[in-house]
Simulated assay, not measured.
Amino acid sequence: MFGELVAAYLFLAGTGAGGIAAASLVDLLVVRAPCGAASAASVADTSPAERLVAYASATSASALVAGAACLIADVGRADRVLALFFTPGFTFMNVGAWALTALITVGAALALVRFLYLPWVGRAAVAVLEVAAVALAFVVAVYAGLLLQGLAGVRLWSSGWVPVLFVLSAASCGCALVAGCALFVEADGRTVALGRAILRSDAVVVGAEALAGALFLAGAAGSDHPGVAASVERLLHGSAALPWWCGFVLCGLAAPLAIEAAFWLRERRRGSGAIGSGGARSLREVDVPAAFSAPAFAVPPVALVALAALVLAGGAGLRWAVVEAGEQRPLELQEVEADGSAHAANPAGGYTEDGEREEPSLWLS
């Protein structure tokens, strides 16, 4: 029903959406980079925090473009690509296609504003684009889960926890993307404090993601539907077990929480006045310890690389596992004839009457 290209699209689109939302929120709430005539002529001349936002915006927009390319390659035909936008009525697919296109456009515009000297683009216009980017990012992150949830042929995906998991995973992957970009920016007082806030926010998101994943699995395991039981078996012990346990649970949940807990304990031992320990100092007022030089988050580069890579691997593992567990469910799709024989139903293009796989036009449903 869905293949590797679709799983790659779900991951790249979610990561790109989360990254653009994270970068936009950081700029809106903390950095407030000058724009227009007040901006620097080159991104190299800006502050470390401004460069961090610029790098995260460009990387996120690139991930979105790569995700869209995977989607187009999976659809395969120009008429089907156009049908994603112009399918009559209100469907998850045409809303998602328009939202993805709009987010790519807004994300590219934000990246250009930060990398090019555009004196006619004021701060107010950039702020409007950033607010629009956050809203569009949420739509892109949630619609893929709603699309899967709405497919009647796979009962595993009908859980309300699927879109919740996708949104939380997109947020965590967005934080990881910003953390990865911090490797290329030097530390100062604002970026160090910003790094603490982002890593702690990610820990909260990962904790919520772990709870949502447990509830999703518990709900599926408690179902008496034979198709869901087969999907759960595949998720726990079959072909989806590796991405679920090693990818999502280990890399995406347990390891990041352990690393972020170690950062928190280190800050507690240092007694450095970090955010959340009294709130005496703002994001703009935290001093940089002399031992910290790079990267921007004042975290050892190896640990920062490991954290970003693990979270992103977990996001990919989640989508691969959920898609794989629901794939090719002939038990669930079978209908029994009056004479007792069975034939494979094809509500989403999964199998023909001869039991052979049929490539679906699922994007048009």
Score class of each variant (00 low, 15 high):
G14C: 03
E358K: 11
W157S: 05
R51D: 04
P163D: 07
S159V: 03
L147A: 12
T59L: 15
R80C: 00
P88Y: 06
V154M: 11
A182H: 07
G107F: 06
F85T: 07
V113I: 04
L151D: 00
A141Q: 13
I20R: 02
G76N: 06
G18C: 12
V126P: 04
L312F: 03
G227W: 07
S277N: 11
A342V: 10
D287E: 14
S47L: 09
G276I: 06
L177I: 10
A203D: 12
A280P: 02
L177V: 15
L211E: 09
D74C: 06
E285T: 07
C251E: 01
P347V: 03
A303R: 02
L333T: 14
A179Y: 01
H343G: 11
Y143H: 11
L12Q: 04
G222Y: 11
G278C: 02
A296E: 05
S159E: 05
A214M: 10
W264C: 04
L253N: 05
D79A: 09
F11R: 03
A111M: 02
T352N: 12
V204A: 13
A321W: 06
V140E: 14
A13I: 06
L217G: 01
M1V: 06
A229E: 12
L165H: 03
A240T: 06
G315E: 03
G276Q: 13
L165K: 00
N346A: 08
E260R: 15
D354A: 15
S24P: 07
A63F: 10
D45W: 00
G317N: 09
D339F: 07
V139E: 11
E335D: 11
V121T: 12
A69F: 13
G213R: 05
S60L: 11
G174D: 04
A348V: 12
L82M: 13
L25D: 04
L147S: 09
M93T: 15
V205N: 07
G238M: 07
F184Y: 14
S272L: 07
D224Q: 12
Y351W: 14
S293R: 15
G3K: 08
A291S: 12
A58T: 12
T87Q: 15
S231M: 02
F292T: 03
A102G: 09
A280F: 05
V228L: 04
P295M: 09
G350P: 04
E356P: 00
A294S: 15
Y143S: 10
G315V: 10
D74Y: 10
A54E: 02
V131I: 15
G326H: 11
A274S: 10
A313P: 00
L64E: 10
Q328M: 12
V249L: 14
L146A: 12
L103S: 05
G247L: 02
A144I: 01
F166D: 10
L71E: 09
R77W: 08
F92M: 15
D224F: 05
A254D: 06
